[in-house]
Design a binder for these strands. Sequence first.
RNA 1: GGAGGGGUGGCAGAGCGGUUGAAUGCACCGGUCUUGAAAACCGGCGAGGGUGAAAGCCCUUCGAGAGUUCGAAUCUCUCCCCCUCCGCCA
Length: 424
Amino acid sequence: MLDPKLLRSDAQKLAEALKKKNFVLDIDGINALDSRRRELLQETEKLQNERNVRSKSIGQAKASGQDIAPLLAEVASLGDSLEQNKKALAEVQAEFDDLLMRIPNTPQECVPAGRDEHDNVELRRWGTPRSFDFEVQDHVAIGEAMEAMDFATATKLTGSRFVVMKAGIARMHRALIQFMLDQHIESHGYTEVYVPYMVNRDSLLGTGQLPKFAEDLFRLEGESEYYLIPTAEVPVTNLVRDTIVPAEQMPLKYVCHTPCFRSEAGSYGRDTRGMIRQHQFEKVELVQLVLPEQSDAALEELTGHAEKILQLLELPYRAMLLCGGDMGANAARTIDLEVWLPSQNCYREISSCSTFEDFQARRMQARWRNPETGKPELMHTLNGSGLAIGRTLVAILENYQNADGSVTVPAALRSYMNGLERLV
RNA sequence: GGAGGGGUGGCAGAGCGGUUGAAUGCACCGGUCUUGAAAACCGGCGAGGGUGAAAGCCCUUCGAGAGUUCGAAUCUCUCCCCCUCCGCCA
C-alpha cells in the first residue's frame, strides 16, 4: 500500500512513477473519494464528540441527583444522525481502502521503463554455458529415460502441471532443499523457520496477493477462508504483521522451505512440457525484514545469497534488473536470476529477488521502534527465491547430462546424496 | 466431537452501565541521591487517525462483529482465539 499522505500531497509524482508499471492512477477519482471520506469523517467525529459531551453531563447530573429528563430529550435525535453518518462513512471508507489496496507499488528510479521481459536489463553474467558434443535432451527426456520422472501418472493422480519423481531424481530434489537451507543458515546468517502452508485472507492482503490476484491462488473449501500458499513469502513475511520489533533485533533474516501452490491461471499453453511451471513446487525462500535505510543494500546482499547457490552448483546464470512492465505489482525493484537451460538454449528465471520498501509493511502494520524518536516506524521487507527447487533440478539434469543419458551429480550436492556421483 | 474456564496497555493483573484510556505491580525512559552502579524516592510511559506552525484539542481502540442504552471494558447475541478435562487421532 502506498502512503495515503503521499497520495494526497504528491499524487502527480506517484502517477508518473506508476506509469512505468503501466498503471494509470486515477488522481481525480481518488481525490474525490478521499475528500468525501474526510468530510464524512469530520462530520461523524463532530457528532460523536457532541454525544460524548452530552452523555458525560447526563452522568454528572444524575450523580448529583438532578432531573435528567430534559437532558435526555435534547439528545433524542442525535443518535439517528450519528448512525446515518457512520454508515455513510463506513461505505466510503471501505471503497477507499479497497482502491488503495489495489494500487501497485511505485518502482524505484533505477527501474528501467519497458513493457515486458524484452526490456529487462542484464546486470551481470556468471559461468559459461557448456558446449555439448551430443544432442542435448531436455529434463523430461532425461528423467523419463531414467524412469524417475513421470508426468502421465501425476496427471492420473491429479491433473496437468504435476509430476511424480522417483529414485535418484526424487533424492536429488530433496538433497537440493537440504543443501540450500544449510548454505543460507550456516554461511549467510539466516534463521530457519517452519510455517503453515495454508494462510488466511489477512496474510494474503498483507503481502499483496489479495485483493487483486485471487485468481492465482488455490482457495480451500470449508468454513474457514484458507488458501494454499503461493510462496513462503506470505507466511514468513507475515510473521511480523501487527508487531513492533525492537531495533536491536533488526534486521530479521529468515530462510524457509515450503511447497508452493499456484493456479497458473492465464498461463495456459506456456511451459506445458516438464517441470518448469507446475501447480505445486518446492522453494527455499529468503526473507529479510530491515530498517528502511538498509533495504537497497539488503536486496544486493539477498540476491548475492541466491547467486551463491547457483555458483556452488556451477550453473551458468545471469542477473536481470526487471523493467517496470515485467515487475510484480508489489515490488519496488526486482532482480531476477536466470539459469541457463541447454534444451531451450536460453536463460530461464530461477529466482526473483525483490524489495518492497514499506509497501507490504504498511499493509501489515509491520514496524520497528526507532530509538531516536521512540516511535514505531514501518520496516522494509524483501524476499527472494534461494532457489526454486524444481527449476534447479531441471537445470542440473540438463546442464550435467551425459551422452549415455546419465547425469553427473554436482560436487556440492554429493555429500547430501551419500557420495553419489552419477544418476543413471 | 463432548464438558468447563478465559481473552483488558510490552508483560502480569484490577475494573457497582456514567470524569475508566483504563487501578496496581513489573519492565522501560527521565530526574534526585551515589565516586559509579544497585536500592529508595519523584516524574513520565500504548496504538491508529483527524486538526494545528506548535502546544494542544478531538475521534477511535479493553479478541472481532452486531445489538440494548443518552452513555458499554462492564449487559445481550454471533464468531474467532487460548487454556483444562474426556473422546478420537499422525
